[in-house]
Nucleic acid binder design. Structure first.
Lengths: 154, 154
DNA sequence: TAAATGTGGAGTAGATATGTCCACATTTAC
DNA sequence: GTAAATGTGGACATATCTACTCCACATTTA
């Protein structure tokens, strides 16, 4: 029961974009460096986010990505569903009837409670909640593999 | 973000044992049939539960498994930890410092909330909560692959 | 002593997650 | 107009995990 790196990368990237001055964007390489994610893999993640409608991309020189919505209009549930599809905690809770058990399945109530709890948190949490406190400070930094600091947009 | 079948199988098997008359047990084959789980795989699951201390096993003819605790003394959290180890939702929340980010990781608060919610539900829910209502009724049944009914202990 | 059980661990097939690569279309700077 | 900088699309590769199988063996009881 673990969240995927893709989902984690997606959120980090979106937060990165949300911290930029309004109207500004960032390109793949900048996001990749600041979030310590392989460029080629991040490209795939960003494509999901573009298709999912939360990010817009511009081609060509000086192109890149920017948020299409205000940070408080993007919930983690949206991001989850873009990256992973419908939130489902057990295979047998699918609608395709793959569960061999009767309505009397005793576990169902727990799975439902669990799903509701997770979905609730995802639905309540927006990118705005993930922005570092204290206003638009400097872009979040990560320690790169050499032990130094990587700056976004370097 | 999905729970494993092992966990699901473990719970079903424990509930099966919990529904038997006190002092009675069930053998692999009986559990396997009633829960529609491959015997050889279930054997592995049960070994986990035995080592985890929630189930006792007896060898030899007429051997089998039985619960070591009252159903309301076995929480889903215990079962989860026996089957899957420590509850962790993201790799980077490990204690081994594999996360490359500073304390300022903005997502950490969400992961903590999420973990707390899941853990809370698992901790509050015991096998007793999963027993079918209406007392010790007949053992839970499943539809087997032939479309008929499988009875526990058949 | 034979049959019925659980034990232990190696092995396997398939799925999924993660990551790489390259040819290509688009845009902008010069 | 051309070259460089970007994102796009998809095939490919790799690693890890899940679910499951199999078999030799120890133990117990009829």
């Amino acid at each position: 029961m673990q969240l995927s790196k893709s989902f984690d990368y997606a959120i980090r990237s979106l937060v990165h974009l949300a911290m930029l001055p309004p109207g500004k964007g960032a390109d793949l390489r900048a996001i990749s460096i600041s979030q310590n994610v392989p460029v080629s893999y991040l490209a795939k993640v960003m494509r999901h986010l573009v298709r999912g409608g939360v990010v817009s991309s511009t081609l060509g020189r000086d192109g890149g990505y920017s948020l299409r919505k205000a940070p408080d209009q993007v919930t983690l549930l949206q991001v989850y569903e873009i990256m992973e599809g419908e939130l489902r905690l057990v295979e047998c809770m699918q609608s395709d009837g793959s569960c061999a058990f009767f309505n009397g399945c005793t576990q169902a109530t727990v799975w439902v409670r669990l799903r509701a709890a997770v979905e609730g948190i995802f639905r309540e949490t927006t990118l705005a909640d993930l922005l570092p406190k204290g206003g638009n400070g400097p872009v979040q930094t990560a320690i790169n593999k050499e032990g130094g600091y990587a700056r976004a947009g370097a």
